[in-house]
Design a protein around this nucleic acid. Structure first.
Lengths: 87, 87
DNA sequence: TGAGGTTACGCCTATCGTAATAATG
DNA sequence: CATTATTACGATAGGCGTAACCTCA
């Protein structure tokens, strides 16, 4: 698992659409699609249901989403606190 | 910043020695040394003081260490909770 | 049949390991 | 001068983007 995968996941979960997530993150769709699949494989279960209109969060995805947001915030907090401590 | 960098950092901080951290993580010393330096550059300040006997945590390093442990735990918790939810 | 997700494929960057080098008490 | 960290360097793997393809209401 990587922080990029977590960021991609959160964007897709919030946009419910890979293409919009890609534009928001300034990357192409395929990297997002691949990283989401890789994350699902690592976690052992699908996080989204694919529909012709986009991506619907499954229950496992909802669980991961809450934790994922916390991880990204924790990284920011760690960065800021360390930068402050180093000045 | 990557989760690998955070794991490398925690190992070095706990072992106070790059070589021991490397053995513990089953990688060679140079990757650890490089990733620590890269992390320090990203955070804008050194995290360790280099001595001929190893690595001493600086104040900024102590700050980062506490946050870093929390991030790694959060990743584990997120993984376990999601695996459970998907079963 | 159109909107959106996925696969194929080639490139390119990042990371690794081995070996050589530096630094310091 | 021994111990430890770092730099050099070549090899490999992982990630990205473009283009082609699939899927389903």
């Amino acid at each position: 698992m990587s922080l990029a995968q977590i960021r991609y996941f959160v964007a897709v979960a919030e946009e419910r659409n890979v293409g919009r997530a890609a534009r928001r993150l300034h990357v192409a769709q395929p990297p997002i699609s691949r990283q989401i699949r890789s994350l699902e494989e690592e976690l052992g279960s699908p996080l989204f249901r694919r529909t012709p209109r986009g991506m619907d969060l499954l229950p496992a995805g909802e669980v991961f989403l809450e934790h994922a947001r916390g991880i990204l915030v924790a990284v920011e907090v760690a960065t800021d606190a360390t930068r402050r401590a180093g000045s």
